[in-house]
């Protein structure tokens, strides 16, 4: 019937839309967080005095402001990206539980990420009028939101992996290796929590283990899951594939 076929077609298109929002989120972050905003590679350092924070931000004021706009766009798209994944795992679950938990983690993760962009923007709003330590605090807060939030983003990955790995052959929303890749991503986010204990070196919020590792893993993970959503909708005859 045309009605059912139409609905299936609708699902395939909307899942592809969600996959594309993941890709756009990565591109927007590369523009806003990397090329303009100075979030990574990090412009600031946690062991700098507060005055140095103000000086560096004043010097790059416009770039950070424009970068923050792009970051906000990028982070807000985590919502539709995560909802797409949950919609596909939901189709494979008879009584959806993991899919609902995923939606909660998606919502929480989106709020946490959006707050990163808020802090980044406020930092560049009036750095000369704020007390310098307040500027420093906003930068600290932004990085803590991004990498200290391991259980939110790692938990999200784990509840994506579980319904994949626990499903039977032929009823799987995504291929099994995608499940393992999610577990791996969760492991790579974990060292982010070290930022509370160090102000310099590889475990501080500008360091290779606590910043670069989780950020690289996170955005590669988004690209992987976007690809997985595209792959699930490859076949024109069914709304989405099972593996």
């Amino acid at each position: 019937m045309a009605g059912a076929q139409g609905r299936d077609d609708h699902f395939r298109k909307s899942l592809r839309f969600c996959g594309w929002t993941g890709v756009v989120a990565v591109v927007a972050f590369i523009i806003g967080g990397m090329l303009l905003g100075g979030m990574i590679p990090p412009l600031l350092a946690p062991d700098d005095p507060a005055e140095v924070f103000v000086a560096k931000i004043s010097e790059h004021l416009l770039a950070i402001r424009v970068g923050s706009v792009f970051c906000m766009i990028s982070f807000a798209l985590f919502g539709s990206f995560g909802a797409g994944i949950a919609a596909q795992t939901r189709r494979a679950e008879l009584n959806p539980c993991f899919s609902y938990v995923q939606l909660l983690f998606t919502a929480a993760g989106t709020v946490v990420a959006v707050l990163v962009a808020f802090c980044w923007a406020l930092m560049a709003f009036r750095p000369d009028e704020y007390d310098p330590t307040l500027v420093q605090f906003l930068a600290d807060f932004a990085y803590f939101l991004a990498v200290f939030s391991v259980p939110v983003f790692g938990g999200w990955c784990v509840v994506i992996a579980l319904p994949i790995l626990m499903a039977k052959d032929g009823e799987r929303p995504f291929p099994r290796w995608v499940g393992y890749a999610n577990l791996w991503a969760a492991v790579l986010f974990a060292p982010g929590q070290m930022v509370l204990f160090f102000k310099h070196g590889p475990f501080s919020w500008n360091g290779v283990v606590a910043l670069w590792l989780p950020f690289t893993a996170f955005f590669l993970w988004i690209l992987l899951m976007s690809w997985a959503m595209f792959d699930a909708t490859k076949d024109e005859n069914v709304p989405s594939r099972f593996y």
Partner: peptide, 15 residues
Amino acid sequence: GEAGIWIFIAGDLLA
């Protein structure tokens, strides 16, 4: 095991 776990193993080895 299975192909997928080797992705996890390779990832952990690299980290």
